[in-house]
Structure formats: C-alpha cells, structure tokens
Design a protein around this nucleic acid. Structure first.
Length: 837
RNA sequence: GCUCCUGUAGCCCAAUCGGCAGAGGCAGACGGCUUAAACCCGUCACAGUGUGGGUUCGAUUCCCACCAGGAGCACCA
C-alpha cells in the first residue's frame, strides 16, 4: 500500500490526460446519475432537523433569463449548504402559471392559454434541471392545475365565511389596455404595473379581501422580522400600510333647504387645529358630495365631477397643479367656533381615505392654504409660527393661538398637548373620538380576465350570493380560446353561457356563476404551504406536515414584490393562523432580495439592444461557470453588471480546481496527519471561514476563500511533494465539497477523480480540526504614535506584559520613540502594540 | 420635496469588535512553456478609502455637514 503512494502516476498523467475537462460532457454525464440517485428529495421522516429553502416560483413566460440565473444560483448555494450541514432540506419548485401574458399570447396565436403556459413550463423545467438546482421535483405544482386552484377556491370560501372576502361597489383602478381592474398595489405612479397604460377610475362592484383589518398586525409583527428581512422592505411595507393617529370630528350640517341632517364626520391628524377649520372639502365622487349639493350648485358640481373622472390618475397625482373645486351650496358648523363654514367638493380629497371628507385648516396645511387662496376662503392661524417663519401654512410645532371658546382653551399649549386636550373635549362632548387610520386599502382581488382561478360563487335571483359547496370544487374554467378571450370590458367567462347558467346550490333555482377570476397574487399567497404536502386532498395542505416545515428558513426573491406578494403572503399567513390552520405568524424567517442583473450600466432591454441570454451564456461557458459568476459577482442584494464580470475567468478557475483533483496521487486512505501542515492549516481555516461566511449569506466572499485554497494547494504541489502529499488530497476533497454548492458538475468530476462514489452533494460538511485553526505564530504590529514602526513574530498566546516588553525592546520602535518619555502603551495581544509618547 | 441605501486600485469587490488598507477576481505589464500562438504557470505594478470637520492612542469602520450615484414614497388630511 505504501509503495503505491510514490511517483509513478504523475508522469502518466502528463501525457495521457487532457489539461482541462469537457464541461458540456460533464453536464450530460452527471444529470442522469443524479436523477437516478434522487439525492434532493426531502425525507420528512424526522431523521434530521428540517429546513425549508424557499425561492419565489417563476412565471412561465418563455425560457429562464439572467435574473433567474442569479437568484437560483444563490438560493441553491444555501439549500446545498444546509444539506451538507446535515439538514433535511425542503427545496421545492412550482409555477405561478395563471396570468395575463398567457392569455394575450393565446389571443395572438388563436389557441388556449394552457398551450402556451404548459409548453413554457416544460422549457423552464428542462432549463432548471440543466442548471442543476437541487430541487425536490416530486413536489412540483402549477397554480393553474385544477388540483391546485380547487384549494385556492376553498380558501376563498373560508375567508368569505370570516367576513374577509366581500363584494362592494366603488371607484376602482381600471386598466384600459388589459381591460381589467387592478389592485392599488398594482398601480405605480398612475400607470398599470404590468403594461404601463394610464389607469383610469371606474365605478364597479368588485371582490375584496379585507386586508385592512390586519393592518395593525401586519405592522406589529414586523418586530418578528426585524434584522431578518431587509430593512428596505420593512420600511416600504410600513409606508404602504401608512398608519396615522388622529381623531374623528363631527361637523353639524344643514341641508341646502336649511333642515339639519346627519353630521359630517372627518378624519384629522391635527385635531388641535380644529379652531382653524374655515371650510370643508369632500371628495367629488363620494356619495356625500351628491347628497349635499344644492339645486343652484348642482349643474356646476356635475360638470366638475365629469372633469374629475376624465382626469387620469397621473394628472391627479401631479403635486403642483392648481387646486380646483366647486362650492356645493351647503354649510357645516365648526364645533369649536360655532361658525358656519362652506362645504366644497375638490379632487385633492380622496374618496377612499378616511371618511372621504376633510376639515380644511389653511393656516396649518399647505394644500388647504393653496385651496383657500385659489377660492378666496378665510385663513386663520391657530399655531404661532416662529418669528423667522416666512412660509405660508405652518405645519411645525408651536403654541396654539386663536383657540378658545366658552368650554375649552388650547391657547398656549404645544401641539401634542393641544391634541390630547381637544381629543378629550371631543369625546366628552360626543363630537368625535380618537382613532387610527391606515393608508392601506382593501385588496381588490377580482379580475375581468379568463386565465385565472374562477371565483366559486353563484348569483341566485332568490338567494343572492351563494357559495359553491366545498364538495363541488373546483369550479373549473370553461374551455375558451383564441378570439373568445379578446377583452370586452367584461369577463370573457360571461360569454360561456352554458357555464354561467347553473342552478342555485341552496334553492335549486336558476342562477349564474360569478364570471370574474382571481388576481394571480391570490394563487401565490399560499403555494409555499401546498409544497409541504403536495398530494393532500382533504384540504389545501396537511396542517401537521406544514407545521413541521414552516416557517421557511429563507426566502429568495426580487424586491419588486415588497408591497405586493410579500404583503399578501404575510396577510394569508395571519388569516390561516387565525383559522387554526397554521401555528406561525410569519411565513419566512429570513428574506433576501437579490439585486438585478444589468448589462453595460442599464437594465437589459430589447430597445437598448443590451440583452444577455442565459442559455447562450450556458452554452458558451457551461452551467457551473455561469452559476459561479453569479455567486461571485458581489453581495447578493447588489445589482450585478454582467459587463463587469468574467464567466471565462470563472471557467478558468473551475478548470484549475479540477486539475487539482487530477494531480492528486495520494491514495484515498492516505494518512492525512503526515501531510504538509501549512496546507492543512489553510484547508481547515477555509472550511471554518466558508461556514461562517455562508451562515451570514456572504456568498461572494466564501467563493474567494475557496479560490485561495485552490491557490495554496497548487503552490504546495509545485513547491515539493507534488500530488503525493496527503494534505493535497485533503485540500482537493475539501475543494470538491465546498465547490459542490456553487459548481455541482465540476465538483462531481473532482469527487470521481479523487476516487469517490457519487454524489458529493450528499457528503457531510468537512470536520474542522480546531488545533489547525491556531496559527503557529502571528505578526504583531508595533506602532509609535499610531504609525507602524516594527513587526514581531510572536506566539498566538503571548501575554500582554511580555508583548509590551518585546515591543519596547525593538530597535525600530526605540528609534521611533527617540528617547522621548513613554506616556502610554496600548497592547492588544497578540496583534498590536501602540506606544504613545 | 421627503425617506432610505451606497461611495475603497483602471473595473468588480474584501478588510466580522475602531487596530498592518488588499483576501479573491477582471483587465494590464513582464517572464516561463511553445516552432509560433492560444491554453497553462509564475512575477509585478496600481488606491490611502467621495469632500470637509469631530471623537480617539489609533477611523474605511463611530458622529456631524456637504457632494455624487441608486432606490422608494409623493395631495393619505
């Protein structure tokens, strides 16, 4: 055995083996091996601690792109790392396969949306397998499968039973291009998030989820995510939910003909300025406006309403546009001053925030100031601005003025005190109350499109809205294709008359099915739960199994979902918790938003012609080199510019690593203790550090450490013993294992070259010999006045006093001290001494 | 306009508790291998950390102001 250790193999190797391996052949070679071994299936048998690695599932539009390449590479490093660390890893994959692009493609190509959808899914699935993401394919799901959307419908019905899904008429966002309504979250800067068309408002009856009743909990439970989710996402959600504390105040109102009617309730965050409310404004499209308007003003109001509705969201959003409005001919009474104040309608007041009406306090609110100036309304300051203040409305802190009546005086109080005092007064006088308002609106979930989950409701002439009984789910989509799907402003489902006409589940009479489908964000709000027990048929998931895996240990995905999917799936999680179907309160422990892949400084786009194709990159450099490039590019949350990167450099490194394994001649059972200690130290330190780096998700630095190890091993080979040193074998094995997280094909090639059976992916994390982590000696820097003057080689455990003596005795240090008295010596053993003179 | 993040070598990025500014890579120069080139191997150079101040024995790191770039929000009463 000992004779086999010596030189004979190296010479043979040089002449017969190529200096590189064929990356593409390796891809062909290992895929079937892995598929046969099936090493990535989650066991869920309790033999190991469980860990759930979740990544946002793809939408099947065409093949995977560079963005997928990045997030999947990063995500897979974590999943594979946990597996080596001995966890039972759940790493599932599926498709978010309902949605508009498939429907639009179906119209273009005159076919059924499923054709496009499932063809793309197959293309992507093939690419994912080639990309060697360690998914458990046995759990694959598609949200457009009846087996899946049956349970989306089932969940909708449970929400409805709890009063969390309901229908109401309201002014809603309408995309004229996609011919469907949109949720608030899907309107960005006044345009459709998906197609960029300018959104308009229409009054329609639609389905909503009552997410607003979870506003406070969505806010409060962020404390559980603090430090584990990116601060940016939490900030955006906090901002979106938009909690504001204030009070309702009731203003007595008389009809145009002088009769008293129900008071006008407003929400304000500044109840302390109530004395300064000199007029009121209601949203023009609110029912309130139509009720209050006098006969003389009706024509003017109606003209204004039409103008408002014609205005697009973009125009309404422009901050500097003049404040328009119309007097309604009605008056309210300021409860503090008893003054009669006019009521106006103006489009700077929103119908769906607060009560749709405000008290206007021009002295302290710039918008009201602008309006007052434009329409010649009185302005009264109720907070004293500072002397140097030269603005118009004053919104800052200061003492109250002009705020006294027979019952109460706020004068002289600061804003906070005044707020508390007036709120008390409002409450005792039954004129209002303290309250909290949220910017968050209910989630509009119905869509007038075909390729989505049908809403399982039947409308009966006698019974009204009736839920489809659970045992009749799923309500499957009728077969429609091509021109049937052309948007007509109503749901395409309405045209499927045979499907629409049904009998009422309650009374058996004639009834019509609801013809809207659900927003696809509903589908994606619970898919991560379905993964846990994919075949389960007694509910959307098996709660017992789900509670074993949830919450997901990490969630990878793009930041563009910060207030969409990431808010919705938190909402679902909380509702399911309240339904007793889920233990946890939050869906994932940690979240990483990967950056975008850009090229030449800009987002890739067809019009700029700077697109990079993932498949082409893989064809050129191989899967491993592309994955490595993505992981090594920088911190995961940073944008990566493909033009700054070098997939060819990555490939070069992988070949170098592979050559290391090829050059190993020490036998599998060589006694590693006999190996080069210097290299062994590097090897063990690398394992230790890479472990720490991966725990803190610093993937790029971890790769750099692996590169260092390869360099160190190469140096050892070149320096003396060649590949026969047992330490070289040890380092090559460690490289193969660490590299298996990033470059699975290369790692497998190395593992085989080292004489091992596949697969390296299921080995266990190399054990670190603590003794080898301690350096033989360390360099101690000796500073004088903070400047480095000398370096000393000292034992790592040197004590403070000894080190101080050594440092002061050093001739370079003495020269720098130059005879001056030593005032202070700071010693940080073993690495630094600073002498202060 | 408001909020948040980021500024380190020609470029991408390290420096974990305030302690030697450089781990890794790209691009580059030189040398070796080669008939030659590519590949491969080796060696080398390049910044004092956006700017100005402060705290400290010591600041890339902490604090303040400013500049630049990026992201988010923007009539929410």
């Amino acid at each position: 055995m000992s004779t086999a250790k010596t030189s004979e193999p190296t010479e043979v190797a040089e002449h017969t083996e190529p200096a590189t391996y064929d990356v593409h052949a390796a891809q062909e070679k290992w895929r079937p091996v892995w598929e046969a071994l099936d090493p990535f299936r989650a066991l869920d048998d309790g033999s190991k601690p469980r860990r759930y690695a979740l990544t946002m599932f793809p939408y099947p539009s065409g093949d995977l792109h560079m963005g997928h390449g990045e997030v999947l590479a990063l995500h897979d490093v974590l999943a594979r790392y946990w597996r080596l660390r001995g966890y039972d890893v759940l790493n599932p994959i599926g498709w978010d396969s309902f949605g508009l692009p498939a429907e639009n493609a179906a119209i273009r190509r005159d076919e059924h949306p499923a054709v496009y959808t499932y063809a793309n899914i197959e293309v992507q699935a093939e690419s994912l397998r080639r990309y060697a993401v360690s998914f458990d394919w046995s759990r694959r799901l598609h949200t457009s499968d009846p087996d899946y959307y049956r349970w989306t419908q089932w969940l909708f019905l449970r929400f409805r039973e709890k009063g969390l899904a309901y229908r109401k008429g309201s002014y809603v966002n309408w995309c004229p291009n996609d011919q469907t309504v949109l949720a608030n979250e899907q309107v960005v800067g006044g345009v459709c998030d998906r197609c960029g068309a300018v959104v308009i408002k229409r009054e329609l009856t639609q389905w909503y989820f009552r997410i607003t009743s979870y506003a406070q909990r969505l806010l409060d439970d962020m404390s559980l995510l603090e430090g584990c989710w990116p601060e940016r996402v939490l900030a955006m959600q906090r901002n979106w939910i938009g909690r504001s504390e204030g009070a309702f105040a009731d203003f007595a109102v008389e009809d145009p003909d002088g009769r008293p009617r129900e008071p006008l309730r407003v929400f304000t965050t500044r109840p302390d300025t109530l004395f300064g409310a000199t007029f009121m404004v209601v949203a023009p499209e609110s029912a309130l406006a139509a009720e209050l308007v006098s006969d003389e003003q009706r024509a003017a109001y109606e003209a204004y309403l039409i103008d408002t509705q014609r205005a697009t969201e973009i125009e309404r959003l422009a901050t500097d546009r003049p404040k328009t409005g119309v007097f309604l001919g009605a008056y309210a009474t300021n409860p503090t001053t008893g003054q009669r104040v006019p009521i106006w309608a103006a489009d700077y007041v929103l119908a769906d925030y607060g009560t749709g009406a405000i008290m206007a306090v021009p002295g302290q609110d710039q918008r009201d100031w602008d309006f007052a100036v434009a329409h010649d309304l009185p302005i009264v300051r109720t907070v004293q601005p500072p002397d140097e203040f030269d603005g118009e409305a004053y919104a800052g802190d200061g003492v109250a003025i002009n705020s006294t009546n027979d019952e109460i005086s706020l004068d002289g109080l600061g804003v906070d005190e005044a707020k508390a005092r007036i709120a008390e007064w409002l409450e005792t006088a039954a004129l209002g109350e303290r309250t909290v308002n949220y910017r968050l609106r209910d989630w509009l979930l119905s869509r007038q499109r075909y390729w989505g989950c049908p809403i399982p409701i039947v409308h009966c002439t006698d019974c009204g809205e009736v839920a489809v009984p659970d045992d009749q789910l799923p309500v499957e989509l009728p077969y429609l294709s091509g021109t049937d799907l052309i948007p007509k402003g109503t749901s395409p489902l309405a045209a499927a008359t045979d499907w629409v006409q049904t009998s009422c589940p309650r009374c058996g009479g004639d009834a019509q099915r609801d013809t809207d489908t659900m927003d696809t964000f509903v589908d994606s709000s619970w898919y991560f739960l379905r993964y846990c027990s994919p075949g389960y048929d007694r509910g959307p998931y098996d709660p017992e199994v789900v509670n074993r895996w949830m919450p997901a240990a990490n969630y990878f995905g793009g930041a563009e979902h910060a207030v969409l999917h990431l808010l919705y799936f938190r909402f679902f999680t909380k509702v399911l918790h309240d339904l007793g179907m889920l233990d946890g309160l939050e869906p994932t422990e940690s979240l990483i938003n990967q950056g975008q892949v850009i090229n030449l400084g800009r987002a890739m786009s067809k019009s700029l012609g700077n697109g990079v194709d993932l498949r082409e990159q893989i064809d050129t450099y191989g899967v491993d080199a592309v994955r490595l490039t993505m992981v090594f590019a920088g911190p995961p949350e940073d944008d990566v510019d493909w033009a700054d990167l070098s997939p060819s450099g990555s490939l070069r490194f992988l070949q170098r690593a592979w050559r290391l394994a090829r050059d190993v001649t020490a036998p599998v059972d060589a006694d590693v203790a006999t190996g080069d200690v210097g290299l062994r130290r590097v090897t063990h330190r690398t394992v230790h550090e890479v472990g720490q780096l991966l725990e803190s998700r610093r993937f790029n630095v971890a790769v750099a450490r692996i590169m260092e190890l390869v360099n160190a091993a190469r140096k050892t080979i070149d320096a003396g013993p060649g590949g026969s040193d047992a330490a070289v074998r040890e380092s090559a094995e460690v490289v193969a294992q660490l590299l298996s997280l990033v470059a699975p094909y290369t790692a497998e090639e190395m593992w085989a070259a080292l004489g091992h059976q596949p697969t390296v992916a299921t080995t266990s994390w190399p054990e670190v010999d603590e003794a080898l982590l301690v350096a033989e000696s360390v360099t101690c820097v000796v500073q004088v006045q903070g400047k480095v003057r000398a370096r000393l080689d000292v034992p790592p455990d040197v004590d403070t006093a000894t080190l101080e003596q050594l440092a002061l005795a050093d001739e370079h240090a003495q020269r720098a001290i130059d005879g001056r008295p030593v005032l202070r010596v700071i010693v940080r053993a073993p690495s630094l001494v600073n002498v202060v003179v």
